[in-house]
Amino acid sequence: MEIIKLSATRRQESGKGPSNRLRRTGNIPAICYGKGLEAFPVAVSPKALLEVLKSAHGKNSVIELAVEGSDKLTVMVRDYGYHPISRELVHADFLQVKLDQPVDVEIPVRCVGKSKGVAGGGILQQIFRNLPIRCLPEKIPALVEIDISELDLGDTVKAGAVPLPEGVKTRLPEDQTVVVVAIPEKGEEGAAAAPGAPGAPAAAAPAAGAKGAAPAAKGAAPAAKGAAPAAKGAAPAKDAKKK
């Protein structure tokens, strides 16, 4: 891995007010800390830091941080934050690391190839999108690829079988499932929509007189040409003469 160079200046003030004033000058507040290193505040360029985060290794990049008036530090980005609206970087934390001492990080996992099981109706389930690993800082891979071409229905890839470069070890148990081609449950694929469910076709009403059609309700008036006769016992019209 190529070590990226980044410059920083020490901050004399801390707190919300000074941090906001610092951001208006085009820099953002950050802090450096590590084992045997007393934490101290610095200021860095958000544009320069963003270039680091956009690089192949992203947050796992190893950085040579040149702090004005201090010795250079070998660090990694431990944390950073964005403004919720502008999405601009607003702060960062740098952790000092030693090139001869292993670090714990997570790297992206990418599946490549077309699984035989998926072609046969299986469902590819990637349990881990990021794989926790341990290795020396300069040996951190940008990502790990898993070839799923030979995976059939029900096949899995365990953590112990994930291909990793020499000197890189996963921090997961060896029998931990990372990828599986799951067998779909009965009716999971191609099942017809239940009546009344969104998108299900409405049942057609039976034609009049068709076999199985519901009989007319007892007492219903028969269809007749013209107005239907008054029901027996109906009240007389208001203008009728009394007998």
Rank of each mutant, 00 (worst) to 15 (best):
K98S: 12
Q125A: 13
K59Q: 15
A235Y: 10
G58I: 09
A204D: 12
L164G: 03
E189M: 15
A231K: 15
D71W: 02
C111E: 08
E64N: 11
K35W: 05
G81V: 07
T156L: 03
F94G: 01
A237T: 11
L65I: 04
D239C: 00
L73K: 11
K116M: 12
A197R: 09
A202D: 09
G154F: 12
K59N: 05
V44M: 00
D155S: 09
A224W: 08
A208V: 10
G117S: 11
N20C: 01
I85F: 14
A194N: 06
T156D: 00
Y33D: 07
C111M: 11
E38K: 12
G187I: 08
N60I: 11
N27Q: 15
R134D: 00
P141M: 08
K47F: 02
V180Y: 11
A224D: 02
P163K: 02
K72Y: 02
A216V: 12
P84S: 07
A207Q: 13
T170K: 02
K211V: 11
A142C: 06
A8H: 06
P198Q: 11
A39V: 07
A182E: 07
T177I: 13
V90T: 15
P165E: 00
I107N: 03
A30R: 09
A200R: 08
G199T: 04
V178C: 06
V44H: 01
S45H: 01
P132A: 11
Y82V: 09
E189N: 07
F128I: 00
E174W: 06
A8G: 15
H91T: 07
L89N: 13
E174G: 06
G36C: 09
K238E: 12
A208N: 02
A92I: 04
A43Y: 08
P165D: 03
A161L: 13
F40Y: 15
P229C: 00
R78W: 06
E88A: 13
V157Q: 10
K225G: 14
D71V: 02
G34M: 04
G15E: 03
L153W: 02
K139Q: 13
E185I: 08
G196R: 06
K54H: 13
